[in-house]
Amino acid sequence: MKSNKVKRFFTLQRKYLCIPYIVFFILFIFAPILIIVFYAITNEVYDAATNTTHIVLSGQPFINFFTDPSKINVLFVSLFIATITTLICLLIGFPLAFFLADKQVNKNAVLVTLFVAPMWINFVLRTGATRDLLTWFGINGGTHPYLATIIGMVQNYLPFVILPLYTTMTKLDKSQIEAARDLGANPTQVFFKNIIPQAVPGIVSACLMTFMPTMSSYVISDVLSEGKITLFGNYIELEFTNKAWNDGSFMALIMLLFIAVAMFISQKFGKDDEKEAGTSW
């Protein structure tokens, strides 16, 4: 009886361990998001009579975004580069993950580690290395900004595609593939009607792990296009340098909307794959 009471008392205690975590989240994850929402729907107005500035509720950041062709351009260029990068990463990464997971081709788990290992060399340094190499080959940001940027993005985000795809590929139901073969499907049919549908969760999380970071990236596009290509990340950075908090917040809010959509998609298709990929390295 007594031990039960003690147990109940301590059960109450143990859950309090997460209080610092919750407080940290409220202060530094949720509060900043609320503040950018606040900044995105307000504007500072200068009052000449009293020589002060007031914060007023305003649709100005919204209007500034949708009436400025350069900002709309940033949106479309970001979407374009992110789509192309994701597609190329998938085209390279899908067969790669397939071969890595195939015991006949690759018996060596170290190879998978080698594909992730470049991530441990400083990311800015790697981007610089790619740029210097491309410049040596004659592809520099001045002449081919799009080509250089996309090469840099693929180079950087390929490991993020390989990991989730590899995890799904190792879990493919081999007997289902054999059954399809036995029932007379040719290799192309097996691939499109069996392997791809089985790999959907991996494909979805691979897409999200490439698309969102590419759209919002700053360093890669800045360095490889020599400032010629402005993505969402570059524009938010520009607003930060100009201390344009309201307009910057509105752009960050749009980015957040994209992320919310991505989160919804991953909840629907992605299952727990992303988390597993996260803990496997």
Binding site: A31, I35, I36, P213, I236, E237, F240, A252
Partner: peptide, 16 residues
């Protein structure tokens, strides 16, 4: 924060 873009984390903290 796992799915959030790094630039949004950075910008929102800075604004705060």
């Amino acid at each position: 924060p796992v799915v959030n873009a790094e630039i949004v984390v950075a910008f929102s903290l800075t604004v705060m």
